[in-house]
């Protein structure tokens, strides 16, 4: 498997102290497909024994795939604070 965090080291991030996406793990426990684990292009969702998934917002590329794919409404999805998050330089 590709370790995407190695690639994200080259990107410019400005981290907010607060996560911009909130995950309701109670709903995640009911999830059967856990597609976010594989669909997220930045590997922000990791498998977790208890909750099923564990979300880290730091590497988020703000694409919205998790929001589009989640069918349980477990995500409180929003954009990060102005100026925070990823800042592309060569895209």
């Amino acid at each position: 498997m590709v370790d995407i965090s190695q690639r994200l080291k080259f990107s410019r991030y400005r981290l907010d102290r607060q996560a911009h996406i909130e995950v309701d793990y109670v709903k995640c426990r009911r999830c059967t497909h856990r597609a976010c684990l594989t669909a997220c292009p930045a590997q922000c969702y990791l498998a977790h024994a208890e909750n099923g998934v564990l979300f880290n917002y730091e590497g988020c590329l703000e694409c919205g795939t998790c929001y589009v794919i989640c069918d349980l409404g477990a995500l409180k999805w929003n954009y990060p604070k102005g100026g925070c998050g990823v800042n592309y330089r060569f895209a």
Partner: peptide, 11 residues
């Protein structure tokens, strides 16, 4: 790879 800080994620 240039030496730099590392953001680590996980449980």
């Amino acid at each position: 790879v240039r030496k730099q800080g590392e953001v680590i994620t996980g449980t």
